[in-house]
Design a protein around this nucleic acid. Structure first.
Length: 158
DNA sequence: GCCAACGTTGGC
DNA sequence: GCCAACGTTGGC
């Protein structure tokens, strides 16, 4: 079972600083609208799993912090909010299509840029780096997790 | 703004 | 179930 994940967040919506400033440093991970990512949350992600907090769609894409999964999944309320960009008219409250879980920030790190990840031979095979990858949640194996912790100079045991 | 790559939709 | 058209992601 995978124990480590990389989760993308647009810093304009929720940056690592926002997560660190939230109550209990915990944020609800709203807005996942991809079935594969949803299924990771529903079927594989467990409380306590390590998370690489990744900034995407911004001027400096890269890993910005370490977090952990802090809850099981529940219905994502934004799917039922017509004014939300994440509104899904086809989803019914009695059968919610989209889920969220809570993510607790552990620490902010230096920004580890995408280019540095790509340049590191030890990170070959990281799902994030696969050609054409767009998934907002990807698994990270323990060797890659350890390597990234080393690059960030943080303890592997988070 | 470009565009490659991928996901979703909908007609058949 | 196929697949063309369209929409989205996300780095550059």
């Amino acid at each position: 079972m995978t124990r480590y994940w990389l989760m993308k967040s647009e810093p304009s919506e929720c940056a690592i600083d926002d997560a660190m400033a939230a109550p209990q440093r915990t944020v609800a991970w709203t807005g996942v609208r991809n079935y594969q990512a949803r299924n990771f949350m529903r079927d594989a992600m467990q409380v306590g799993d390590g998370v690489l907090f990744y900034h995407s769609s911004c001027c400096e894409p890269g890993i910005a912090g370490i977090a952990r999964i802090a809850s099981a999944t529940r219905s994502d309320p934004t799917q039922f909010e017509p004014q939300s960009p994440y509104f899904d008219a086809a989803s019914k409250p009695e059968a919610p299509r989209w889920l969220l879980l809570e993510v607790q920030a552990e620490r902010k790190t230096r920004l580890l840029p995408l280019a540095e990840l790509r340049a590191d031979a030890a990170l070959a095979g990281l799902v994030l780096l696969r050609r054409g990858n767009r998934l907002s949640i990807t698994p990270v194996d323990s060797a890659h997790w350890a390597r990234i912790c080393l690059l960030l100079q943080v303890p592997t045991a988070h």
